[in-house]
C-alpha cells in the first residue's frame, strides 16, 4: 500500500471523530480505497468510513490488506503531523507495521513513524441498502448544537419528521425541550439550508450520548445528512471530498 494525502488534516479529523467510539480497528485497504467498519463496545453504534482511492494522489494497493490499528496509538502519531502536511501511508505485504510520513509543504522537514499493527478479529456486518422514509440535510454545526443543548436535559431524544418539518424533543428531570426545523433554502449560503425529503412520517428515539459523540465529526463537513425510517438504525453521514464519507449508524430505542 502507498497512499498519499495532500492534507494530513483529513485523516487527523476522521480519527479524532471516531477514537472515542471505537478503539481497535481494521483499516481494510484495496484498490478502491481504505475502509473501516467497527461497532462501539456496547454494540449500539457502528462507524463506517470510506476513503476512496480518488481522495489520495497517488494511491496504490496491489493486494488487499487489513491494517489492524489501535486508534489511541494512531492519534499519538497523527498529533505529530501538521494539518497541511502531506501524509503518506505505506505498508508492505503481510505487514507488521504501517509507516506514516509527514512532509511539510514549505520546508524540507520530513518526519517518519511506524505503528505496530495488531491482529483484530472483527466481524463485518452487512448493512442493507435502505430507502429511508426521511432524509434531512442540515448544517453540521446546527446538528451539533441541537444534540449538545438537548443532552443537557435528557439521555434520549425523539426525532419526529413530518411534512411540517423535523422536531427534536427531549424530556428530563428538570423539564423538557424541543427544537423544530423547517425546510429552508438560504439563497446566500446554501450550506446553511435545511433540506427535508420525506416519503412517510417517522418518529424514533435515540440515545443522545452517541449523537453527541458523532458530532465530533462536524469539522469534516459543513453539512450532515440524517436518514431515518421507522424501527431501523439512524444513519448520520458526513460527506468528504471525492465521495469519501464518514457514516455513523445508531440503533433506536424501542418501546415494548
Amino acid at each position: 500500500l502507498e497512499a498519499r494525502l495532500e492534507q494530513a488534516a483529513m485523516l487527523k479529523r476522521v480519527v479524532d471523530a471516531i477514537k472515542d467510539l471505537v478503539q481497535d480497528c481494521n483499516f481494510d485497504c484495496n484498490d478502491s480505497g481504505i475502509a473501516l467498519q467497527a461497532m462501539d463496545n456496547s454494540h449500539v453504534a457502528l462507524v463506517s468510513m470510506m476513503l476512496k482511492s480518488e481522495s489520495f494522489s497517488p494511491f496504490r494497493c496491489d493486494r488487499n490488506i487489513a491494517l489492524g490499528i489501535n486508534l489511541t496509538s494512531l492519534t499519538k502519531v497523527l498529533r505529530a503531523a501538521q494539518g497541511d502536511d502531506i501524509l503518506t501511508l505505506k505498508a508492505e505485504d503481510a505487514p507488521d507495521v504501517v509507516n506514516l510520513t509527514f512532509e511539510s509543504p514549505e520546508s524540507d522537514r520530513l518526519s517518519e513513524y511506524d505503528i505496530k499493527l495488531m491482529d483484530i478479529d472483527q466481524e463485518h456486518l452487512g448493512i442493507p441498502d435502505t430507502e429511508y422514509a426521511a432524509t434531512i440535510t442540515l448544517p453540521s454545526s446546527e446538528f451539533s448544537r441541537i444534540t449538545r443543548d438537548l443532552s443537557a436535559l435528557s439521555e434520549s431524544v425523539a426525532i419526529e419528521c413530518t411534512k411540517e418539518g423535523v422536531k427534536f424533543t427531549c424530556t428530563g428531570d428538570i423539564g423538557n425541550g424541543s427544537v423544530s426545523l423547517r425546510q429552508h433554502t438560504n439563497v446566500e449560503n446554501d450550506a446553511k439550508s435545511v433540506d427535508i425529503s420525506l416519503t412517510e412520517p417517522v418518529a424514533l428515539t435515540f440515545s443522545l450520548k452517541y449523537l453527541v459523540n458523532f458530532c465530533k465529526a462536524a469539522g469534516l463537513s459543513d453539512r450532515v445528512r440524517l436518514c431515518l425510517s421507522n424501527e431501523v438504525p439512524l444513519l448520520v453521514e458526513y460527506g468528504l471530498s471525492n465521495n469519501s464519507y464518514l457514516r455513523f449508524y445508531l440503533a433506536p430505542k424501542i418501546g415494548d
Binding site: 463485518h124 456486518l125 442493507p128 438504525p233 440503533a251 430505542k253 424501542i254 418501546g255
Partner: peptide
C-alpha cells in the same frame, strides 16, 4: 419504557 436496541439486531452477520 423504551429499550436500547443493539445494532447487530438490524444488520446481518457474515
Amino acid at each position: 419504557a423504551k429499550k436500547q436496541q443493539s445494532i447487530s439486531n438490524f444488520f446481518s452477520k457474515p
